[in-house]
Every structure is written in C-alpha cells, then in structure tokens.
Design a protein around this nucleic acid. Sequence first.
DNA 1: CTGAAGTTTCAGTATTTTCTGAAAGTTTAA
DNA 2: TTAAACTTTCAGAAAATACTGAAACTTCAG
Lengths: 181, 181
Amino acid sequence: MLMTAKIESFVMHCGEMGSRWGFNRTVGQMYGLLIIHEQALSAMQISEALNISRGNVSMGIKELQSWRLVQVHHKPKDRKEYYSPAGTIWEMATRVFEERRKREVDPTLSLLRDNLLDEPANEQELFAQEKMHEIHDLLETITHWAGELQSMSPDKLNTLMKLGAGVSKVIDMKDKFIKKG
Amino acid sequence: MLMTAKIESFVMHCGEMGSRWGFNRTVGQMYGLLIIHEQALSAMQISEALNISRGNVSMGIKELQSWRLVQVHHKPKDRKEYYSPAGTIWEMATRVFEERRKREVDPTLSLLRDNLLDEPANEQELFAQEKMHEIHDLLETITHWAGELQSMSPDKLNTLMKLGAGVSKVIDMKDKFIKKG
DNA sequence: CTGAAGTTTCAGTATTTTCTGAAAGTTTAA
DNA sequence: TTAAACTTTCAGAAAATACTGAAACTTCAG
C-alpha cells in the first residue's frame, strides 16, 4: 500500500482543489501524490494508488508536463519511467502562477488591447471602452506586482513578514525615498 | 439590441474566462455584460441579450450575489429588479480574490493544520508532513502578501510601478536600513 | 382578498468533461 | 529482426455540470 489514511486525505484534497488550480480532479490527485511521496513513482504505481486507468495516468502526466511540474527519472536495468515533482514547492507555485497567467490573463489583455485600438462608435461603446481600460490597467498592475513577488525568494518574504513589514510600509518608505532623492 | 459586435466579443470572452475565475460560462457572460453596460439591467434583458433562459439568469444572479459582485436596484413605478456590478473594478477584483481564498486556500490550510497536529507514524508520514509544512507556510506567506497588496489603492501601486520601483529593490533598501538602525 | 407581474426552484434534459481500455506506437535487449 | 516491456492515443462510455421551462412562490396594487 502506497498511502496511509492521512496521506490519502491530502491526496484526495488535492484532487478536489485541483480543478480550482487549473487542472482536473485526477491530475490534482496525481500531483498531490507525487509531492507527498519521497520516491519517484511509475505510471503503474500511480494508476494503482489512485485507482485510475493506465491511460488516464498517461494523459495526466502529459498535462502536468505541459505545466512543467514533473520530472522523469530512469532507474538502471529498468525500462519504466518514474515521475517526481519538479523543483521546490516555491518553484512549483511560481510555475502554476505563470502558466495560469499565460492561459487566463494574457488572452484577456490581448483582447482588451485589440478592442481599445478601435474608436468607439457611440456613447455605449465609449462607456464600454472606459471600463475595458480600467480592467486592462488593473490586470497589468496585478501581473506586474505578482511577478515582483515571484522573483523573490520565499525565505526573504518570510523574514520580512516576521519583521512585521507590510508591503504598504515598505512602499511608503520607498515613496519618501523617491521624493527625497 | 443591447450589444454591439465589440461589446459582444468582450462579453463572450468573459464567458470563456469565467470558469477560470471560479464561476461558469453563463455567469461569466452575465458579469461581463453588467460591467460593460452603463445602465442596470433587468433579468429579462439579460436573458434576451445572452439568449439564456429566465431561470438560468436567476441562478446566475444568485451566484454573483454569493460573491458579492452585484447590486440590486429598483425603479419607481416598476416592480422589476435591475442589476449592476457592485463597486469599482478594483473592489470587484478584491472580492473575487477574497472569495477564492475562502473557497480554495482556507480549506487547504485547515486540512494541512489538522494533519500537522498528529505525530507522524512512520518514515513515509514524516516526509509527507515536511512537505505539508512547506506548503502550509507558503500558502500563509502568499495570502499574507496578497492581502497587503489588496489593502493598497491601485493608484498608488500604479504610480510606484511607473516609477520603476521593484519590490525587491525596495526591500533590499529596507534591509540595509534595518541593519544600520 | 385577487390576480397580475414578477422571481425562484428544481426535475428532467442537454452539454461538456473526464475516464476507460483496447489498439497502435515506441524502445531496447538479444 | 524480433518480441517483450513499456507508453500513448483515442473512440466510445460514464460522470459531472449546466440549462431549460413549467410550476410554485412572492409581492403588491386595487
């Protein structure tokens, strides 16, 4: 048996949350299992642990690979492929964010930009464009700052957090600094 | 006709993205329509604009209300209810974040905490707990910093962004400051 | 009260998404 | 070159999700 009750509860929870994070239940479970399991696992082991078909595992791995979330290993004298999560927890979170941005935010930004190029044809379109402009700017701001956070090490963030430094404080400081300089 | 071609493209896009942001296609379309439309709309108008049943609109409004994203209006001499988006774009984004955190992150944090209370029963569970701990800390850090960003006005963020201020630079600065002081 | 004008609910249906398992494809040792 | 050991693909089945429309419910003016 690959999972104790506690581990199973975590894996199933990843399944339920999985769809929220951009993949489906099974892919979520697979990912949870790989994270929680010290050794890399073969497709067959995954299929047995989660009670899903071998084909489904293959598709799930492919999906996780498209998110750059798994690594493949080979053992000597063994033809099977073994899978494990790629990178640290922080790196994985970063990748999920990035991929989601590509899939969710980028197309929206591009649609908004296209729409904003045209002249509004009437009152109604003028209002619509104003709103689209607001959304566009907001999305740009959010992706910018998200990128900033991602570029920092989690250790650094944690340390600062524990020092009680809120972003706002830090930024106030910067504000003063800029005005002074 | 309620929508020009350009407006329709935006509304349909919201439908496609909708499911990514936590609701379904129709609810996404409804929300897009309300945002882009200057006047508040009645359920019947929404139903006609989007070609969906009256019942579906009712369910969609209920869903949007559970996210605190719509406002109801009444017009004198008119029994119908009219709907419009609640608050500014920034406030709406903030609400979506908050609600998603409640639905996605909070349950995970609580599961992780529960699991971390128990003593690991073996080597395998020890490893699992270490990973869960990492995830737990990461989620806490992320929610903390997300909250910080949300608490700031978008204007301020934009201004700073345009000044070319990266968080990391700011934080380095603060770091030195702390060491000096 | 009554009934007109509206909203909500929900059983059944339609649509979309996911999963299975068998067939096709790939790789490698001999 | 063969065949065993493995992986991938994909058509069809199953499951999950969303939608419709008619009935039930609510509200309010007269």
